[in-house]
């Protein structure tokens, strides 16, 4: 048995290094479906290297938030990353309610980005900020549905207890409720990471943008921080999804770590496939989907409690 701390630490570092690979995978899959060759798998690394060599340019009419937002936002994301059970090993910083803190750190990152967007005074960025807040408020419901599900399983609103709760019979006993929770969380993952059908990361049309509209004014290293942060966020959501679907009997092993990494990369493939097979929703439909995700998460809790034998 390997030292869990070593597994956690190496998995954490790998997450930070491999995160920019995810958008590359998504784009490759989308290109495959569209019959194109697509950009390089490592395109985001090249982009980041290019952007970091440039210098930022800021509008003279904007205040301080515009400049502060990217580093603070990335800081929040990195802090959140420290709470995750990387490689299915509980984080050294983990505690009973860390899932709540995790999602609110992501919320904090969003909040500061929104302030930065409003700071520019641009009508596009204002619209983007307003949409981002509206949809994230609704996504929060679904997120707490999933946290509630975790709490029902483990007795605590945290990631900490998950791996400790081992046993090989998870999927044979709890398949339905786990699937429901995972489905709900996948919807949240798509919405929170600005993927089709909720948002379109490829669009150049300001009027339809959500997240992209908020970062129109950034360039150079600041844009690099934002792009890196976005890929890290997608990585972290995929990891939480893995915690829900992977059998916990493998936790604390190198196999567990490998499965998590593989699962995260596979999630990117699924995201790309979903994006290729459907059109984007009109805005009015987004809230319905998010509330629907909440309902699915609640259904998962219901199944767990009623059919799968109460709280342990």
């Amino acid at each position: 048995m390997a030292n869990p701390t070593v597994i956690w630490l190496s998995s954490f570092l790998l997450s930070l290094i491999l995160a920019p690979l995810l958008p590359g995978i998504v784009n490759k899959v989308k290109a495959f479906f569209a019959g194109r060759r697509g950009p390089n798998l490592f395109q985001l690394y090249f982009d980041l290297a290019k952007l970091l060599r440039k210098e930022g340019v800021f509008s003279a009419t904007a205040g301080g938030f515009l400049q502060v937002a990217p580093p603070v936002s990335l800081g929040c994301l990195l802090l959140a990353a420290l709470l995750l059970p990387h490689g299915l090993v509980r984080s050294p910083l983990g505690f009973g309610g860390d899932a709540v803190l995790f999602f609110y750190l992501l919320g904090m990152a969003r909040f500061i980005t929104v302030l930065g967007a409003l700071d520019t005074g641009s009508s596009f960025e204002g619209m983007g900020a307003s949409r981002e807040m509206q949809f994230s408020a609704l996504a929060e419901g679904a997120i707490f549905g999933v946290i509630g599900f975790i709490a029902v399983f483990t007795g605590r609103a945290g990631f900490t207890m998950l791996p400790a709760d081992g046993g090989g019979e998870w999927w044979s006993v709890h398949a339905v409720s786990l699937l429901l929770a995972a489905a709900a969380f996948f919807v949240v993952l798509m919405a929170e990471n600005c993927r089709v059908p909720f948002d379109d990361p490829e669009t150049h049309l300001e009027l339809t943008m959500i997240h992209e509209a908020m970062i129109l004014d950034y360039g150079g290293p600041d844009l690099a921080l934002i792009l890196y942060g976005a890929s890290l966020k997608l990585w972290m959501y995929a990891m939480v999804l893995m915690m829900l679907v992977l059998p916990w009997s493998i936790c604390g092993t190198w196999l567990g770590m490998g499965c998590t990494l593989g699962g995260v990369l596979l999630t990117a493939v699924v995201v790309g496939a979903v994006e290729s097979s459907m059109a984007r929703y009109r805005f009015l439909k987004v809230p319905r989907m998010l509330v629907g995700a909440l309902a699915v998460a609640l259904l998962g809790i219901f199944f767990r409690l009623v059919f799968e034998g109460g709280i342990q």
Binding site: K30, F33, V196, P197, S276
Partner: peptide, 16 residues
């Protein structure tokens, strides 16, 4: 139109 609703396959094929 397919590109604007983010429906990728038709957007790419029609371009070609």
């Amino acid at each position: 139109l397919a590109g604007d609703v983010a429906f990728l396959p038709t957007a790419s094929f029609c371009g070609r």
